[in-house]
Design a protein around this nucleic acid. Structure first.
Length: 596
RNA sequence: GCACUCGUAGCUCAGUUGGAUAGAGCGUUGCCCUCCGAAGGCAAAGGUCGGACGUUCGAAUCGUCUCGAGUGCACCA
C-alpha cells in the first residue's frame, strides 16, 4: 500500500482508539463515534521541507470532540506516533499540525513499491460499480472537428481515470441519426451523387440547409459506384431513406476513423433511430405519462431573445419544473414529430435499463441550457434511481503564428480532427487538450505544441523520460550489465542502502509518492487535467535533480568508479520513469525514449 | 431578464474532498556546460486570489450578495 495511505489509515485508527479510551474514562460526557468523521483526516506530503515529510491535520479536526485544544490533542497523538516504526521524528507544529519525518528506509521501501508495482501502484482494485460515460456523440453529418476533439480526449481520459480507481467503465457514443440534420445530409449527398454522374449543379446549390464540405464528394461517388444512375430520376421519397442510411454509415465510418486516430475506442455506438424503432421512446413516454409528468400546455416566449416566428400554441410538455427545472419542456415539435429531447429521454432510460445507475455525459458549453432538463428527465424516468452527471467543456481556440485560426462549420472549412493530428500528432494533441481544466477556454497554438522548450509541457515531460532513458543508455556503456531491468531486479531484492538517499533524492520520492492520491482525486473531481499537471511536476523534480549533479558530484547518476552507487541512483530513476510512463499511459500517450 | 461556466503575479495557468508564509512557466534581472542530453537548472523581483459580508480553530477553496467575461435560452441537434 502507498505510504501516504498507510499512514492515513494508521492516524485514523489512532483517533478511533483515543475515542474508545476516552469513552471509558468519561462516561456520559464522552464524544460520540458518530461525531468523528474520520474521512476528513488528511495525511499529506508537507509542502515545505521545514515541515518534515508528511503532515496531518488530525488534531485540528477533532480537538473539539476531545474537549481540548488542537495542540494538546496533537501532543497526545504525537506520543504514540513517535513509536511507529516508520517515524524518524514527529513534532507538533503551529496551530496543532503534526509533522512527521520518515526513516529513509521507508522512502526506499516506497521506491521499491513504485518500481515493483508499476502501473498497479496507483491502481485500485475493482469496486464492482459500473459507470456509463457518453461522450463525443457528434452528429453524423461530417468528420470530427476541434470541439469534438476536446470532448473525445476529455471523455476518454475521464473513463481511464475511473477504470484506474476501480470502476467498470463503459464508453458510449450516441448517434443522432433520426433528426432533421440527417435529411439535410442525405440531400447534400444527393447533390454530390448527381455531380459524380457528370451533372453540373446550378450556382447556389450548396446554400441553405446543405452541407457544402468536400468530404461528401467521395460519398456521392461511392453511391454511383454502387448503384449507378438508379436514383437519378427517382422522386425524393424514393431515394431519401436510402441516402440517409448510406450517408450516416459513411459519416460514422469517418468519425470512427477520427476517433481511432485520437486513440479513442468506444464500447458501444447507440443509434437514436434504433432506439425509437425498438419502442424505447414509447416506453419512456408511458413511464412519464403514468407519473403525471406529461401534459399539454402553452409556453411563454423566452425573455431577452427576439423570436420572429414565435407562436403561442398548446404543446406536449414534460413537467421538468417538478424536478427542479425553470420551465416545462416540449416533447413535440410544431409539425407533430418528437423533439430531440424526447429521444434523449428514451436513450437515458435505455442506459438505466442496461444496468447503469451512474451516468456521465460530456457536452460542449453551448449545451449548458440543456443540462437541467436532462437531469430532470433522468430522475423522472428512473424514479431517482439513476444519477446523471454532466461535464461541460469550453471551446478550443486555435492559433497559428499567434493569429487565431477562424473556422465555420457552415462554410465547411472548419479545422478537423485530422488536421490537428496530422499537424502535431496524437500524443501532443491529447496532452495539450488535457492541460487545462475542461471548464476553461483552451488556447491551442500549433507552433507552441511543436516547440522544443519548457514552455511546451508535452515536450517537457517527454524530455524527462527520454533523458532518463539516455542515462540508462550511457550507463550501459560504463557498466554493461546495468540495464534498467537489472537495476530493477537488484533494487527489489534490497541491496540498496537507504542511508545513501540524499535530501534531494527524498524530495523526488516525496513527489512520486503523491501519485496514487493525484489519481484518486482526479477521478473524484472528474478532472483529468490534474494528470498532465502532476507529470510536469515530476519532470521538474527530475530535471532539477539532474542539474544538482553538476555542482554536487554525490548526486550524479553515474559514477564510473562506484558501480553500487550508480545502481542505487539508477534505481531511483527507474522509479521516476515508472511514474512518468504510468501517467502518460493513463492519458493515452506513449512515452518516448529519445527526442528527435 | 434567466441559467450554466470562469475571474489567482505584466502574460498563460497550477493550487492536494477547507490547512501552515498562495506556486510554476513565459517575460524582466543576475547566475550555472573541462562534467551522464544547457532541448535543462538555480536565484531575485513581481499578489488586496475581481469586490463585500458570512460560516470556523483556519477560506483562493464553502454560503449569500455584488462586479466583470464566456456560453446558451419554444419547435434545431
Amino acid at each position: 500500500m502507498p505510504i501516504l495511505k498507510t499512514l492515513q489509515e494508521k492516524v485514523r485508527r489512532l483517533i478511533q482508539d483515543f475515542f474508545l479510551e476516552n469513552r471509558e474514562d468519561a462516561e456520559g460526557s464522552a464524544p460520540s463515534l458518530a461525531e468523528l468523521d474520520l474521512s476528513k483526516v488528511q495525511v499529506d506530503i508537507a509542502r515545505e521541507a521545514a515541515h518534515g515529510d508528511v503532515t496531518t491535520n488530525a488534531a485540528l479536526l477533532f480537538a473539539k470532540n476531545f474537549r481540548c485544544s488542537p495542540p494538546s490533542l496533537a501532543k497526545r497523538l504525537v506520543a504514540v506516533i513517535g513509536t511507529w516504526p516508520e517515524i524518524a521524528q514527529v513534532d507538533v507544529a503551529r496551530a496543532g499540525f503534526i509533522n512527521m519525518t520518515l526513516k529513509p528506509h521507508f522512502w526506499l521501501n516506497e521506491l521499491q513499491n513504485i518500481v515493483a508495482l508499476g502501473e498497479n501502484y496507483a491502481k485500485s482494485s475493482p469496486n464492482g460499480q459500473k459507470i456509463n460515460i457518453e461522450f463525443v456523440s457528434a452528429n453524423p453529418t461530417g468528420p470530427m472537428h476541434t470541439g469534438h476533439v476536446r470532448n473525445a480526449i476529455f471523455g476518454d481520459a475521464l473513463a481511464a481515470l475511473f477504470e484506474k480507481v476501480g470502476y467498470s467503465v463503459y464508453r458510449e457514443y450516441y448517434i443522432n441519426d433520426s433528426g432533421n440534420q440527417v435529411e439535410c445530409l442525405a440531400r447534400s449527398v444527393y447533390l454530390r451523387y448527381k455531380e459524380a454522374l457528370g451533372h453540373t449543379l446550378p450556382p447556389g446549390a450548396f446554400q441553405g440547409d446543405i452541407y457544402p464540405g468536400d468530404y461528401l464528394i467521395p460519398v456521392g461517388e461511392a453511391l454511383v459506384q454502387k448503384d449507378g444512375e438508379r436514383w437519378l430520376q427517382a422522386p425524393e421519397s424514393a431515394w431519401l431513406p436510402y441516402f440517409k442510411e448510406f450517408s450516416v454509415q459513411a459519416m460514422m465510418d469517418l468519425i470512427r476513423h477520427d476517433l481511432a486516430e485520437l486513440g479513442v475506442v468506444m464500447d458501444c455506438y447507440s443509434s437514436e433511430k434504433a432506439q425509437i424503432e425498438k419502442g424505447k421512446l414509447a416506453e419512456a413516454l408511458a413511464i412519464l405519462e403514468k407519473n403525471g409528468d406529461i401534459y399539454t400546455g402553452v409556453l411563454t416566449p423566452p425573455k431577452g431573445k427576439a423570436i420572429d416566428d414565435w407562436e403561442a400554441r398548446p404543446q406536449t410538455l414534460f413537467r421538468a419544473t417538478k424536478y427542479g427545472d425553470e420551465i416545462d419542456r416540449p416533447l413535440k415539435k410544431s409539425d407533430g414529430s418528437w423533439t430531440y429531447f424526447a429521444g434523449d429521454i428514451a436513450y437515458h432510460l435505455d442506459k438505466y435499463q442496461r444496468g447503469f445507475t451512474r451516468l456521465i455525459n460530456v457536452l460542449g458549453a453551448d449545451h449548458c441550457g440543456y443540462v437541467t432538463r436532462l437531469k430532470a428527465a433522468v430522475q423522472a424516468v428512473t424514479q431517482g434511481r439513476a444519477e446523471l452527471n454532466v461535464n461541460l467543456f469550453q471551446i478550443v481556440n486555435f492559433f497559428e503564428n499567434g493569429q487565431p485560426v477562424k473556422m465555420s462549420k457552415r462554410a465547411g472549412n472548419f479545422i478537423t480532427s485530422q488536421d490537428v493530428v496530422a499537424r502535431v500528432g496524437k500524443d501532443a494533441t491529447r496532452f495539450m487538450m488535457l492541460t487545462r481544466h475542461h471548464g476553461t477556454v483552451l488556447d491551442f497554438d500549433f507552433e507552441k505544441v511543436l516547440e522544443l522548450s519548457q514552455e511546451n509541457p508535452v515536450f517537457y515531460v517527454q524530455y524527462a523520460h527520454a533523458r532518463i532513458c539516455s542515462v540508462f543508455r550511457y550507463a550501459a556503456t560504463v557498466f554493461p550489465d546495468l540495464t534498467e531491468e537489472r537495476v530493477r531486479a537488484l533494487g527489489k531484492t534490497g541491496t540498496t542502502n537507504a542511508q545513501n538517499l540524499s535530501a534531494a533524492e527524498i524530495s523526488v520520492l516525496r513527489c512520486l509518492s503523491l501519485w496514487p492520491k493525484v489519481v484518486e482525486q482526479a477521478a473524484l473531481h472528474q478532472e483529468p487535467h490534474r494528470i498532465p499537471s502532476f507529470l510536469c511536476q515530476v519532470a521538474g523534480e527530475f530535471h532539477s535533480l539532474w542539474n544538482q549533479g553538476k555542482s554536487d558530484l554525490a548526486l550524479r547518476f553515474i559514477d564510473a568508479h562506484n558501480k553500487e552507487a550508480t545502481q542505487e541512483k539508477l534505481f531511483l530513476l527507474s522509479g521516476v520513469a515508472a511514474i512518468l510512463r504510468d501517467g502518460l499511459k493513463l492519458i493515452g500517450i506513449r512515452p518516448v525514449e529519445e527526442m528527435r
